[in-house]
Every structure is written in C-alpha cells, then in structure tokens.
C-alpha cells in the first residue's frame, strides 16, 4: 500500500472502525479460546440492563450508537463475546469501565443476547429520506 493511500485511508477512517479493527485483531491474536460462543443470556434481563446500567446513554436504546458511543447492534458489531467483555471491562477510550462488581459476566451475556435480537435496519435504498 502506498504511503499516500495509507494516509488517505487513515484520514477518512472513523474512530469506531479503527477500534473495531483493533478489537478484531486482538481476538485473532488471542487464539481459539476467544472464538468461544457467549454463554446463554436472558434477553429480557439484557434489555433492562442495557438501560439501567447506562449503556443506552451513549449507545442509544437499540445500540445503534450516537455521539460518544459506537454502534453495538445488530450482531454486537461483530465482536466475539469475549472481546465484547474485554471492551466493557477495559475500555479503550473514556467509556467508564464496568468491573465484575458492577456487571457480572452473566449480566454481560444477557446484554449481549439482547443486542443480538435487534433486527437489521431497513436497507438504505428503501428509505427515501436518505437517498
């Protein structure tokens, strides 16, 4: 990749994408254990926790992201559960860290399960206001 092209890509990539790439890289580097599926989660509990634990404050009610928080749903932004947990425990930016005392692994599994239930949005081509 040429220096100029690398520069242009860096210049236009958002923080979210960079962070996501970083997380995926961490996931791959850590090996097979990170491929483990999430423990069973309770969707209803996750939905309530998403609001009461403050996730919705920055990531908004459907995890669609907003000003300070990147998009999480649907499909938890393609983060494996273990990476998801890692990002909540040790955030890379100014997100408040949630230790196991604040949110247990099971509660995070509930939130993860809730985020997975959020349907994909309508295709952009079907929304006249966004054309």
């Amino acid at each position: 990749m040429s220096g100029v092209l690398r520069f242009v890509l860096a210049a236009t990539a958002g923080v979210l994408i960079l962070e996501h790439s970083s997380a995926v890289a961490q996931e791959r580097a850590a090996g097979p254990t990170l491929e483990a599926t999430a423990p069973a989660g309770n969707v209803d509990s996750g939905k309530k926790l998403f609001v009461s634990a403050g996730c919705a404050l920055c990531h908004n009610g459907e995890g669609q992201g907003g000003g300070p928080g990147p998009r999480l749903a649907p499909n938890p932004n393609m983060l494996a559960f273990k990476v998801f947990v890692q990002r909540v425990r040790v955030p890379v930016n100014s997100m408040p860290p949630y230790t196991t005392k604040v949110l247990s692994d099971q509660q995070l599994a509930d939130i993860y399960a809730f985020l997975q239930t959020i349907p994909r949005p309508p295709d952009v081509s079907t929304i006249p206001l966004l054309r």
């Binding site: 100029v4 092209l5 242009v8 890509l9 210049a11 236009t12 958002g14 908004n60 009610g61 459907e62 669609q64 992201g65 998009r71 749903a73 949005p121 309508p122 295709d123 952009v124 929304i127 966004l130």
Partner: peptide
C-alpha cells in the same frame, strides 16, 4: 484520492443513519 475517500465516508454515514431509523 481524498475526494473518493470523502464520498465513501459520506456513504458510510448514510448507512449509519438507518440504524435506529
């Protein structure tokens, strides 16, 4: 190259707007 990248960035924003529509 910057202009092409700018158009792609705008297109990403357009798709992002669909989430939570």
């Amino acid at each position: 190259m910057l202009a092409e990248a700018r158009l792609k960035a705008i297109e990403r924003e357009r798709v992002e707007a669909t989430y939570g529509w």
